[in-house]
């Protein structure tokens, strides 16, 4: 990077320069928006969150995805002026859905913005994503929005594109949240640009279990184990909560946290596929790569979504965004 102060802006300029036919960076409002407005009025979708988690969310702006994204400073939620500008851009008269990850700052800033936009006559609906199952049910309010957020953006985006109304798109988004669970592990701490050193020390032969995004420590630390064992750790709690033993179809997302080599990701993906099949569940769609990250963390987040026919159909529908592109 050139400087910590300019890294977010330079990233956004670079993203827009690399995908000029799909998105543009509105530098005045500090939002990333679809290049072309929809040809037909449709429900608008916006999301936002701290930068450092690329390609989330700006990478999912485009046809069949988000209409606009609000990138905050590093690991900091966006501010209401951004969210309100994104809302106005996304609104084509059928209302706007806010896709909010369950982090205090996001819930508060999107909540404040929703109140203001409703007074201006724009219909707003909210979905809070909390697919993180690393916290026990007794700490349900701490569950963060992780990889499930991307699946909400993709699937609700397709529902909006096919012409669903705001209530229907919201209901689809909530169904995705209810049926998805994520679990993460990390082998180091990321370095935030301004701090300039890792947020915390991690011995080389240990790793954190139950991590999210944003450079937070996991819930517990363990001595290093094999990839097989890590696949088991990632699958255990999601499988339990989603009742995966009973022959279900799932959409599987495995995201690196920023510094995880593809060879490691696909190794884990293969092991997870095998373990799923051994309990009678099939991952019928898979996304493996960097989809939700935490700067330069070395780690993974595994997300499992139990998908019915409608969710699968919406997942397969065309999308044209910087980070997801198929079917068009």
């Amino acid at each position: 990077m050139n400087a910590p102060e300019s890294v977010v802006t330079e990233y956004l300029r670079g993203l827009a320069a690399s995908h000029p036919e799909v998105i543009e960076f509105n530098s005045e409002a500090r939002i990333v928006q679809r290049k072309l407005l929809p040809t037909q009025p449709k429900v608008g979708l916006i999301s936002g969150g701290g930068s450092g988690c690329e390609p989330m969310h700006s990478g999912y702006v485009g046809f069949g995805g988000l209409d606009a994204a609000c990138p905050g400073e590093i690991f900091t939620s966006p501010v209401p002026s951004q969210i309100m500008a994104a809302t106005e851009r996304a609104d084509s008269g059928k209302g706007v859905l806010y896709i909010i990850k369950n982090f205090g700052g996001e819930v508060m800033n999107f909540g404040l913005s929703a109140e203001i936009m409703k007074r201006k006559g724009i219909e707003i609906s909210k979905v809070i994503v909390n697919d993180d199952c690393s916290f026990p049910i007794s700490h349900f309010d701490r569950r963060r929005g992780l990889g499930g957020t991307i699946l909400v953006e993709k699937i609700a985006g397709a529902a909006a594109q096919r012409g669903d109304n705001l209530a229907q798109v919201t209901s689809i988004a909530k169904r995705v949240v209810a049926n998805s669970r994520s679990f993460g592990v990390a082998f180091n701490s990321c370095t935030t640009p301004k701090l300039g050193h890792p947020n915390f020390e991690m011995p080389e032969d240990e790793f954190d279990i139950g991590v999210g995004i944003g450079g937070d420590r996991g819930h517990s630390r363990s001595k290093m184990v094999s990839a097989d064992k890590i696949a088991e750790i990632l699958i255990e709690q999601p499988a339990l909560e989603l009742d995966l033993a009973s022959g279900k179809k799932i959409i599987f997302l495995l995201s690196g946290l920023g510094s995880t080599p593809s060879i490691e990701l696909y190794t884990l993906s293969g092991l997870i596929h095998e373990k799923l099949e051994s309990i009678g569940t099939k991952a019928v769609r898979s996304l493996v790569g960097n989809f939700i990250t935490s700067l330069d963390s070395f780690g993974v987040i595994a997300t499992f979504l139990v998908a019915d026919e409608e969710l699968l159909e919406l997942y397969d529908a065309p999308i044209d965004s910087p980070a997801l592109r198929w079917g068009k």
Binding site: G50, G72, E73, T76, S77, P78, V79, P80, S81, G104, G105, M108, N109, L112
Partner: peptide
């Protein structure tokens, strides 16, 4: 403050 800080602290101090 609300439109410049971000995060929870911006909303709370605002």
């Amino acid at each position: 403050i609300i439109n410049s800080v971000g995060g929870a602290s911006g909303a709370l101090y605002g």
